[in-house]
Design a binder for these strands. Sequence first.
DNA 1: TACGTATGAATGAAGG
DNA 2: CCTTCATTCATACGTA
Lengths: 219, 219
Amino acid sequence: MPQAPSTRWCPTPEQLMILEEMYRSGVRTPSASQIQQITAHLSFYGRIEGKNVFYWFQNHKARDRQKLRRRLSRHQHLLYSCSHPHSLHRLEETFHPPPLPPPLPFRHQTLPNFLHQVPVTSSPLCHCFSGGGSREANEGLNLLCKLETGGGVETPARASNMGYGYERMVKMDGGSAIPQCCPRPLKTLDLFPTKSTGLKDERSTSKSSSCSTSTNLSP
Amino acid sequence: MPQAPSTRWCPTPEQLMILEEMYRSGVRTPSASQIQQITAHLSFYGRIEGKNVFYWFQNHKARDRQKLRRRLSRHQHLLYSCSHPHSLHRLEETFHPPPLPPPLPFRHQTLPNFLHQVPVTSSPLCHCFSGGGSREANEGLNLLCKLETGGGVETPARASNMGYGYERMVKMDGGSAIPQCCPRPLKTLDLFPTKSTGLKDERSTSKSSSCSTSTNLSP
DNA sequence: TACGTATGAATGAAGG
DNA sequence: CCTTCATTCATACGTA
């Protein structure tokens, strides 16, 4: 049997190749229609859904960035100790030998074609998903910049100024009408009997939390 | 050590259960005071902040909408392909029946209640946060209506609002955008034509300086 | 058999 | 609300 209703999508070699090619070409965050097209095309090589494409790019980009960040921080340490801030800028160029295809400046090789809507492409598929170039193009540098500046201090304040959504709301409310009752579930409100079945799996001991929706009790 | 300063909140099973129950009951965008109350209650089951509740609802709502959209979109595709047997593109949804876990159905059993603005709540907690039932009530229908109407045909110019995460695109593609992507790598296919009607569509093209996909050599 | 890695998928959190 | 990012979960696969 070919396979059971595999729960998870797995790219076929062709699909993967194409996806990577596109990524290399600069596609990082394909738009709705792009994904649609990509999906349509890739579906020729095997089962695939839009979300797969979406996730693929999302993950790929994130991981790419992650690696880069890792490396950067590592090297940063070295340089940092040398107390030569300006050298950081050349960092990436300095050390990104060949391990992974960094957000290379595709701009000057393949993308331009798309930008002109000229079908000339190394790969038959790519030009279809050109998207824009500049954005992705800058992305690489941008990332580097961000990383560089952020360096070791990541995630700025999180409590101070939460953001637009919630914080603001709270402010508006001014904290007035809500007389936060008791810190514990009111007796009357005992809805769901807290099953003592031990659902509390919670890896509290773990360093962080995880959130697996219980909806997935699969094998 | 109970736990390190976990960076991220993760709902305990109880919290999650309650939140879901409330959501099912119609709570979609709790007000500040509601959030506070909810938070107060949930805090009994574990650490939790108002913003967590806030985000949870926001994300959950979006996700829920995604599913709906996806559903509709799939439906569309089916219909589309039916009325257009000519369509070459075989959408994944079209030919792979039920390979993936069905996006469990919207609680039509519960929603109706709100529609009547009847605070019928299966859980004792709910009534505390009933807020304006009607509001949420309409929200549900509203969403459905919107999706249904917009889904089918050439969606006016409402491509702007799509889910997030991933489905945002699915919606856009709606049925109009899909060019004729052959099931196999074409030689010269037109890039995404319909791109975006006029919405922001910030991505691919850097800043929509003026043109769309064309040469957008950065400044 | 037991880890370590790669990666699809999911979701909390923000920014705007 | 929309979009993106970061983290994390779960699993398949490889290697010792």
